[in-house]
């Protein structure tokens, strides 16, 4: 992955408190695993920024290298990779996810 893509990814990951790299959008997820994470975040009433990797092939490939994680979706909180669908679901079921996302809550300066 070239530096420009890495910088783009870093900018998004660090520019928003909660970021979900997913297939589709938060309103129209286009993959079951992405939809599961969107649903979990909805239940926790978490506002998040989404990146539709289907519209950005460079990021779709680069994010896998960025996190050393071969699949989408990928959830980031406060700049840190939290996990894919399995881990996010496991953290939600154990109650840990609430603390993680609330630790990262509050909007980054200047974001919508």
């Amino acid at each position: 992955m070239d530096d420009a893509v890495r910088e783009r990814i870093q900018g998004v990951v660090e520019g928003h408190k909660v970021v979900l790299f997913m297939k589709g959008s938060k309103h129209f997820p286009q993959c079951g695993f992405s939809a599961t994470v969107v649903e979990v975040l909805r239940r926790l009433d978490v506002d998040f920024h989404h990146v539709n990797v289907l519209e950005d092939p460079e990021v779709r490939q680069g994010i896998k290298e960025y996190a050393n994680w071969p699949t989408i979706p990928q959830l980031y909180v406060a700049g840190t990779f939290v996990g894919g669908c399995d881990i996010v679901r496991q953290l939600y079921e154990s109650g840990e996810l609430q603390g993680i996302v609330q630790g990262g809550q509050g909007s980054a300066p200047g974001s919508a």
Binding site: N68, W69, T71, G83, G84, I87, Q90, L91
Partner: peptide, 10 residues
């Protein structure tokens, strides 16, 4: 961690 366990498998 869970992430490290899964990365091992991947």
């Amino acid at each position: 961690t869970l992430i490290e366990q899964h990365q091992l498998v991947y």
